[in-house]
Design a protein around this nucleic acid. Structure first.
Lengths: 342, 342
DNA sequence: TTGTAAGCGTTATCAT
DNA sequence: ATGATAACGCTTACAA
């Protein structure tokens, strides 16, 4: 028999389908003996409940949509792994879509998932704010959505984010304490909230220490290593290399590091570098890259929990969880290890 | 109306549900006017066919299961992106599971997906051969499966693989032509077929050039950077550093590179390094890492095509596609750029 | 060209 | 504690 169904099992045991169904769903009354017999026979016959039929009759898809902006930084790979694991353990499947840092693609992704009747969505938005009104609209319609990471604190919806301002302040101040006098910030995208927040932290630190205008500069780069490289080339061409860079992420920092080394700059003596959202590569380059680690695992799990709670309890409150991280200081930004980090 | 169904649309237009169904499924006869009217009205009403109901009535899930061994190397991230894109364009959803290089987890993943009635599976196996008989059994039962990358050519099933022997031969021979005299191979896992194949290519090159036994050595490492580091530490301790390493992948090569540099070895003058399955990081380290690039995109697409063909045409032949790549020679393995690569 | 109705494999309500 | 049956939303023979 190709597909063993609930009916086959029922017929074999001369019971009704409802009894078989009950045996597989703990919530109903059923005699212990019959239950055991049914489960045993079902197993022998190779019966598995058909999840699609279950979904239809319960009017639930038991699918969760996850939309991420990209896959190139290991950050989102880790997020995805944790989310998969979490939701599978709760009987859900994860449908994953990535937007390739493209707003149109992102909108398509979300719509595809909604049309496929996912029970809830976790969205880490791409660069740009164009889809924001649509997201808010869906959220307000009652669609269970949790936003992750790429979203600002003012969004009126449940979200799990990182305290970018605080940790980019720390990172910048660390460079200042190391007596770097001219510190530039390679900032990612202007229309990306995490960029704005990291800029804010950078500015805060620079202003606190009263850096003169000519000693700080914010340069929009994008998020890729290649873009970090291009910026350095340009700065070299204009004889405008500062003595430190605080970068929006590790990839940009690593691109910058490569270009600087190729052009004879010593790191950290001539130029210091600090990244953000630590990747595993930070420890593989020479010198090792200082970076801010985000608690990826916990953030993903929290997002999953909030979403699940909202699905099972539609009136649950909007929650905003702000995570903190840890700043790993390594050789790329330290002239003097005797200076305390904070 | 929360969920607009086919009935609602039918009622509104005073037609039968079958007519509405036909309007949404090109394969039936239907008057052009009615079809247009139905589609227009349906759109106005916000109707979307419920995919779950469709699946149930067609006895198909329109889901594809994809099982990958890990997410840490960008290789599988790229594979996944391509597969997603491909299958969505064909009306399928991709359910992704990763096995964390663990055979038990892998078996669970495959069973979960099969129980969830995926219409087909793409499997890139983990380290180890334990699940192989199970895979073959399922394949022989007629389950549409395509194996990807982590599988040897002798498996009697459709698969898309890379010519590891050939390209690791090239990589090794390149080191020989660069006049490195003692070349070790950091080999990954002994019970991993791509490792075995890369070992074979390495041996072939070494034997062709009659390297004496003491000048070659194969060391099992694993696939992570940390493991590359450990091996180097060990070799340094035993004063057994050769003048070149051919590594099973980029991560191991990068770990080795880091440890070597930290210990004062100059690359490529004292020691040369070559990786495999090129990652984006290869070009970010100093010196840049030589590596074999695999045509990830094409391999994933091909796997998708074969699977889809098999789903729609169960009698289709077992296919084995072997891909070739390209060897990108960079500074990590070149003492003399005047020597031709081949 | 369109309508009727059975069927996909479950769950859940109502009887018994 | 168990059974009968409607319902979930769609597709698809068959009838008209």
């Amino acid at each position: 028999m190709i597909h063993v169904t609930i009916k086959d099992v029922a017929k074999r045991l001369n019971v009704s389908v409802s009894t078989v169904s009950r045996a597989f769903n703990d919530k109903y009354d059923i005699k212990k003996d019959t239950k055991e017999l049914i489960l045993k026979t079902a197993k022998e016959m190779g019966y598995h409940p058909n999840p699609i039929a279950k979904k239809l009759s319960q009017n639930k898809s038991f699918n969760i949509g996850v939309v991420i902006p990209e896959f190139m930084n290991s950050y989102y790979s880790e997020i995805v792994i944790v989310l998969q694991e979490f939701f599978i353990s709760k009987g859900y499947q994860v449908l994953l879509m990535q937007s390739d840092e493209n707003e149109e693609q992102e909108l398509k992704n979300v719509k595809t998932l909604i049309n496929n009747m996912v029970d809830g969505l976790i969205i880490a938005p791409t660069v740009g704010y164009r889809n924001r009104p649509y997201f808010i609209e869906k959220y307000n319609e009652g669609y269970p959505i949790v936003f992750l990471n790429r979203i600002d604190e003012t969004l009126p919806a449940s979200k799990v984010i990182f305290n970018n301002v605080k940790w980019s302040f720390f990172a910048t101040e660390h460079l200042i304490r190391q007596k770097y006098k001219k510190i530039y910030h390679l900032s990612g995208y202007n229309n990306l909230c995490v960029s704005s927040e990291r800029i804010e932290g950078y500015k805060k630190a620079m202003n606190k220490h009263k850096f003169p205008k000519e000693n700080y500069k914010i340069i929009e780069t994008g998020l890729l290593a290649e873009e970090g490289m291009e910026v350095i080339e340009d700065l070299i061409f204009h004889h405008d290399i500062p003595d430190a860079f605080f970068c929006v992420n590790d990839m940009v920092a690593l691109g910058a590091m490569k270009k600087l080394k190729d052009n004879g700059f010593k790191i950290p003596d001539d130029v210091a570098l600090v990244g953000f959202t630590e990747t595993r590569i930070a420890k593989l380059v020479t010198p090792e890259l200082s970076s801010v680690r985000q608690p990826t695992h916990d953030m993903a799990k929290k997002a999953g929990e909030i979403l699940l709670n909202r699905i099972n309890n539609p009136d649950s409150e909007t929650e905003t969880i702000v995570f903190n991280g840890e700043f790993n200081i390594r050789k790329s930004s330290v002239r003097d290890f005797s200076i305390p980090p904070i």
